[in-house]
Simulated assay, not measured.
Amino acid sequence: MHTKKAAAVALAAALGVTSLAACSTEDVRDAAGKSGSPAPKTVTLVSHDSFNASKEVLAEFTKQTGLTVKVLKAGDAGEAVNKEILTKGSPQGDVFFGVDNTLLSRAVENGIFETYEAKGADRIPAGFKLDKRVTPIDTGDICVNYDKKYFADKKLAPPQSFDDLAKPEYKDLLVVENPERSSPGLGFLLGTVAKYGDAGWQDYWSKLKANGVKTVDSWELAYNQEFSGSAGGKEAKGDRPLVVSYASSPPVEVLYAEPQPKEAPTGVST
């Protein structure tokens, strides 16, 4: 049930890589001291709701460049890209962080980025250089996460395949994200297309619907409110023990839990 995604575009010196949105490239280059033009004092970074650079990282960026970063969160990843497309004539910010390979063609075809080569881009493996207008920074797996306690209490094995998710024993357990707005939601949809082909993916989704799959607009809603295994899910009394998320989600649960558990309360289906 895994699908691979490559995250693209990032902040700048403090985070190591840069990609610039719409018609603001020259402003940011000037701000970084690459020309003699006056530098703006603030750079507006547009991203998705899950973007979370620490105050320390942003402060270090300001120390290195003299620029203050203003973060503008614009919804889930797909929603954020759509907003940039709608405002490309008068962009909301200078930099966009968070478009991945599932959304990249939409962004590029609508011309929201200018060409920019980040320092150190020559060290990026060729297979990850998707377009000269964006800088790849990471890769990761989109997959189904599960609530360990739920499956242990029910003495039920977690699902191990797309087919499993449509079986009666997993009825009303899965929450997914709207692929029109969400990057993991779109990645999961594309995974089913790759698995079942043009002739079969719609039939598969009909089976998921009959098996009680729940679709919500964003990853934040799916993971933090509907999923029973996350800290946010517990607070919101989420009752879905299966959620489309990332392979990195279980270790993050350990990182941010208070007190920190010895092992993650969630797992990844293979």
Rank of each mutant, 00 (worst) to 15 (best):
W219K: 07
D76Q: 03
T266L: 10
W205P: 02
P40G: 05
A12Y: 10
A210H: 00
D122A: 15
E226I: 03
K167I: 10
F96K: 01
W205E: 02
D30T: 08
A21S: 12
T135F: 09
R29Q: 14
Y116G: 05
G197W: 04
P179A: 13
D198Y: 07
G111S: 10
P241T: 01
W219R: 08
V193N: 00
E109D: 13
A59W: 00
Q92W: 04
A247G: 12
A236I: 02
Y196W: 03
A194E: 12
W201R: 08
D76R: 02
T3K: 01
R123W: 11
A39Q: 06
D141W: 14
W201C: 10
A231C: 03
G98S: 08
L11P: 00
D76W: 02
L174M: 09
E60T: 05
G267C: 08
L173K: 10
G187Q: 00
E258R: 10
A222Q: 06
S218N: 03
L103F: 08
P241L: 01
D131H: 12
Y204W: 02
A39D: 03
P179T: 14
S19H: 13
K70Q: 15
F151W: 07
D131F: 04
D141R: 15
H48Q: 11
N178S: 13
E109Y: 02
N110Q: 11
A31V: 05
D100F: 05
V244S: 03
L186I: 06
P125S: 10
L15W: 07
E180S: 14
H2W: 01
V57D: 11
E226L: 04
P40Q: 07
Y204P: 04
F162N: 06
R133G: 04
K195G: 01
S50P: 00
D164W: 07
R29G: 07
G233H: 04
D94A: 08
A59E: 09
V213M: 03
K154S: 15
E180F: 09
F96L: 05
D141C: 11
M1S: 13
G78D: 04
T62D: 08
D163P: 01
Y146D: 07
D141H: 14
V43I: 15
L103Y: 03
K129G: 02
D76I: 01
G140R: 08
F188A: 09
P261R: 11
N52E: 14
P136D: 07
T44D: 10
A231P: 00
Y204M: 05
R240S: 09
V243G: 02
D27M: 05
S248F: 12
A13C: 02
L242W: 08
L15P: 00
N82V: 03
T42A: 05
V43T: 08
D76T: 04
D203L: 01
L221A: 07
P261T: 13
S248G: 06
A264G: 13
A12N: 13
S182Q: 04
H2E: 05
P250L: 09
H48S: 13
V9P: 00
K149E: 14
P250V: 12
E180Y: 12
A231S: 12
Y256H: 08
A7G: 11
Q160P: 06
S269V: 14
E60G: 06
